[in-house]
């Protein structure tokens, strides 16, 4: 990486850290001022809606396979369904991802053998 890329990376890292740390500092001061322990009324609604929609948008973008085609879409659908099923059973974060990736891989291999 040249100097400008290093600076860019450091700026991204610092910016990301500040996005995580500054709202906490702000909210702690806000709570101190109000002397309350429940922040549900203090959070702007748009902020609580924007967080999950950003993750939903990232999910939508990441769904598109690197090489879109019938087999990759079928594998994506199967992997997604498996992820949901495992999540419903375990309510954990790691196992559904492992299961989804495994099924995605199996479908890719099976379709390759059948083709």
């Amino acid at each position: 990486m040249d100097k400008s890329l290093w600076l860019l990376m450091l700026a991204c890292a610092l910016g990301t850290f500040l996005l995580r740390a500054l709202p906490l500092i702000w909210m702690r001061r806000h709570l101190d001022r109000l002397s309350i322990s429940n922040n549900s009324g203090a959070m702007p609604i748009w902020l609580t809606v924007l967080a999950p929609t950003m993750i939903a948008a990232m999910f939508g973008v990441s769904l598109v396979p690197a090489h879109p085609g019938l087999s990759s879409w079928l594998a994506t659908l199967s992997g997604g369904l498996c992820t949901i099923l495992v999540w419903r059973r375990t309510r954990s974060l790691g196992w559904p991802v492992c299961g989804g990736v495994a099924v995605y891989g199996v479908v890719v291999v099976l379709l390759r053998i059948l083709a």
């Binding site: 429940n38 922040n39 990232m58």
Partner: peptide
């Protein structure tokens, strides 16, 4: 990069009452 990570803005305030 910052726009994508902007969702983190809501995380700190949500756990602040427990810290």
């Amino acid at each position: 990069t910052l726009l994508i990570n902007a969702r983190h803005l809501v995380y700190g305030p949500n756990i602040a009452p427990y810290l």
